[in-house]
Amino acid sequence: MGAFLIRRIIHMAAVLVAVLVIVSLLLRLIPGDPVDAMMSGNPGMTQENMDMVRDQLGLNDPIPEQIWDYASGLLRGDLGNSLRFRAPVLPLITEKLGPTIELTGFALIIAILIALPLGMITALHRDRPADYIGSIIAVLGISVPAFLLGILFILLFAIEWRIFPPAGYGGSITDGIRAIITDGDFGPIKESFRYLFLPGLTLGITIAAYNARMIRSSMVEVLRQDYIRAARSKGLKHSTVVMRHAFRNALIPVITILGLQMGYLLSGAFVVENVFAWPGIGRFSIQALQWRDYPTIQGVVMITALMFLTINLLVDVLYAFIDPRIRFH
């Protein structure tokens, strides 16, 4: 296990270096640089002035040098300074990362809450009405674009029924929890969830449909195995067979899919954040890209890549706990 982890971590580091180089190069291929973007509304700016700013920001250095400087900063845990805000990138990103993690985390919980029962019921009632209805719901779920679902929810819950706010952010959950602990005040956390609910539900439903289908197929596969028949013929209760024998084994492929889904989840978050004006990393990256703020975009890519790679590693480690037969090579 130790050797496996070390090998994987070295591999991760190599991937991160390559990601950094490729993304940095790609960013510099985008027409227009940060100074052009900054000065676009400022016709009084002369060419010399702009070149001076470029010099100050180090944009006139050779590109390999720029990348090298950035990379050596990374090793010290320094993600550089945003060209737009003239401030360190890391706090800027972590500030936006909070709402995105809340959104994706909440969506994941909703997804699991919908997908587990839906997948289990359709698998256990295979080829019966419950299965057909459940499968139709799942196909509809994967076929509706997240932004469209978001718009429909706003129309229903925010405009027609006025239950939830149409857009915006209600403060972070951690602040809400702090308010409960210090003042016993449940107001802030209610407010956070009131705003979180619609975007979270939107994102959650789109992911839930995929998961329900995966859980169904995985369950159906497992229920066909000999050890299930053996467990049944031992006279075990139906619920015991389903929960202890089938469910546990059916979870293995589902966890892989969950790991891979981080990409879908984050991509969905980019879109949903835009629909609901959620102040997360997705909206922020689109802005940073328009500003050509190289260090900020590089920072976002590096942090998300690190998160992805870590999650995939965790998924592999998690296997071993669920299925003791799996050993690391």
Partner: peptide, 9 residues
């Protein structure tokens, strides 16, 4: 490499 970058980014 490509799978480590969110495809929307």
């Amino acid at each position: 490499l490509q799978l480590s970058i969110p495809f929307i980014l």
